[in-house]
């Protein structure tokens, strides 16, 4: 490994790890600084990107090729392929979770008419006493709060 490559690796390393930390920090800041659920989800996406950047950066090695064999040549040094595979998995998982979050967000907005985290928290913390006296009288399961059209259709 040449000294140049080492120097490049050092600067690249700082940039990548620093970038990952920055993304995570911006993401968490976005999640806590404002009281909007949409921003919370965007922040979450940033945090996930930061984590993925960190993971993929772990596999870096100086002067190594992408882990694909071209023309049957197998003896070139390659970067670690494992973190790349992990990141692919992690990205797909993140997509699934965010899509579900978006679906929930739509229902939250529809149900409470707001995306303000404080309003939602207030609603959740409300004592069931506010809504119903003593035990439910009729419907099993959810007498305390009004039931909106339940997702029973398939």
């Amino acid at each position: 490994m040449s000294p140049d490559a080492l120097l490049v690796a050092e600067y690249l390393g700082r940039a990548l790890y620093g970038g990952a930390i920055l993304l995570i920090a911006i993401g968490i800041y976005a999640m806590v600084a404002r009281y909007n659920l949409m921003r919370v989800l965007l922040g979450l996406a940033l945090v996930e990107s930061g984590v993925n950047l960190f993971l993929v950066a772990i596999g870096f090695r100086p002067e190594a090729a992408a882990p694909i064999i071209v023309g049957g040549v197998t003896d070139v040094p390659m970067v670690d392929p494992l973190p790349q595979a992990l990141v692919l998995t992690a990205i797909v998982i993140g997509v699934g979770v965010l899509a579900l979050a978006a679906a929930l967000l739509i229902r939250v907005k529809e149900t409470y008419g707001t995306l303000d985290t404080r309003e939602v928290a207030k609603f959740l913390a409300a004592e069931p006493a506010d809504a119903a006296p003593a035990a439910g009288t009729a419907v099993a399961g959810t007498p305390a709060r009004e039931t909106v059209n339940a997702g029973s259709a398939s």
């Binding site: 739509i106 229902r107 059209n149 997702g151």
Partner: peptide, 14 residues
């Protein structure tokens, strides 16, 4: 799972 859960959550939506 995410698609199923989203379908479940959205099935009652307007």
């Amino acid at each position: 799972v995410a698609a199923t859960a989203a379908g479940l959550i959205l099935s009652g939506a307007g």
